[in-house]
Amino acid sequence: MKQNRIGHWIAIILGSLYFVVPLIGTFEFSLRKLRGVYSFEAYRVVLGDPAFQASFLYSVGLACLTIIIGLLLIVPTAYWVQLRLKRLQPFVEFVTLLPLVVPAIVLVFGYLRLYNSSSWLPLTATARGTDILLTFGYVTLALPYMYRSVETGLKSIDVRTLTEAAESLGAGPATILVRIILPNIRSAILSGAFLTFAIVIGEFTFASLLNRPAFGPYLQLIGANRAYEPAALTIMSFAITWACMGIIQVVSRNRAAMRK
């Protein structure tokens, strides 16, 4: 029994080292920009770079837009599937999983064929059109995560009975969705939103091939041309992702405590 526990600890320590040592190494390296002293100079340079600010804000804007469109599309769909179209559930789940099966590069080439400047819907002919295309691409990429989060939230409540209770009190579908369903799956929606945010912030393939100034291509550019700044950016990206995950945990825990 004791030996077994030691084995567990060894596995945990080895696993942790596997993940933590490269991060510590990267962090340590990011502090070495000034010769002979540890400093946050690389971070200062990155944060002061107008291209960083522009690309980061661009990606944050797109992430917010992706979240809004994704929620508008997915919440009513998942709600309706749960409520009235249960037999379509396997099909809808299959569709939502497709973005995990079809590589991003295939998707973006498909988009370029369909929406190039000489097509019937020439979205790539203008920067705004390409932004719209990129946003819808991100909605597709985030679909498996967003749908699963929302679906899990809906499964944790009795959608049908709550809907019927509200209907018997005179409420229409929009009222039920906004006043009853959404508040009760808030943590699930936030989980989906933060996962989407993390995916969009670091996404490279779509933004690069559509030639948009997003944060992903900026990361790649810095990585190819600088020494210490990529390490600083890596640490910052991890920090953003962890912050998102931390917020998901806090929200989920508060919600779980409320349910008890």
Partner: peptide, 28 residues
């Protein structure tokens, strides 16, 4: 159902978890 003016009580209570008792009663 919303147009029938029929009150319904369910086996699983079906109270709205996000609303207080007073808000639940006042919902309709």
């Amino acid at each position: 159902p919303a147009k029938r003016n029929v009150g319904m009580v369910f086996q699983a209570y079906a109270l709205f978890p996000n609303l207080t008792v007073a808000e639940n009663i006042g919902f309709g």
